[in-house]
Amino acid sequence: MGPPVFVAFLNGYTPPWADQVIERLAATLPYPIRRVDLRFDLRPYYAPERRQHHATLLLATLLRHLPEPGGKIVGITCEDLFIPVLTFVFGQSQLDGPAAVVSTYRLHNESYGLPADEELLRARTVKEVVHELGHAFGLVHCRDQRCVMRASTYVEEVDLKDAGFCDTCRTMIAARTA
């Protein structure tokens, strides 16, 4: 087993399925998964004209809260995230770096005017968290239709892929722990 992956639902955001996300991650990644509670002031990252939070700055703060050197941390927030040049992002990470962040904002059915579907939201969140962590473990986008590392720029694309890695990506992740 490699160094631990810390999963932080930020600022007390506790969806009913938070524990299930942890379980799915433990089943997918060959690393110990630990849930941590993290709270910090998000206001400095808020861009009022866009009504969104700056993902890169948020990522830098997460990095400072990494509980253990050598580990990875992924933050999960319900705020809408952006990076300066793009309209929005589902999440962001540093390729081969220690930190990642995922926003559930545009994973909610309600963001598209649909009735809430917690089960679907959980499934999407798991996929995006695994995807961003995959980047943190050095994986780039994969062309396999079902692989979780496939790039998805809108939510229906997230629904099309599986929550797990394809054989190639899984082998690459495993090679890192060996």
């Binding site: 890169t56 990076i83 300066p84 793009l86 962001q92 990470s93 390729l95 780039v140 986008h141 790039a151």
Partner: peptide, 11 residues
């Protein structure tokens, strides 16, 4: 920085 990260993740 944003675009660099975006494209690196895209391979």
């Amino acid at each position: 920085k944003s675009l660099e990260e975006w494209f690196r993740e895209d391979g």
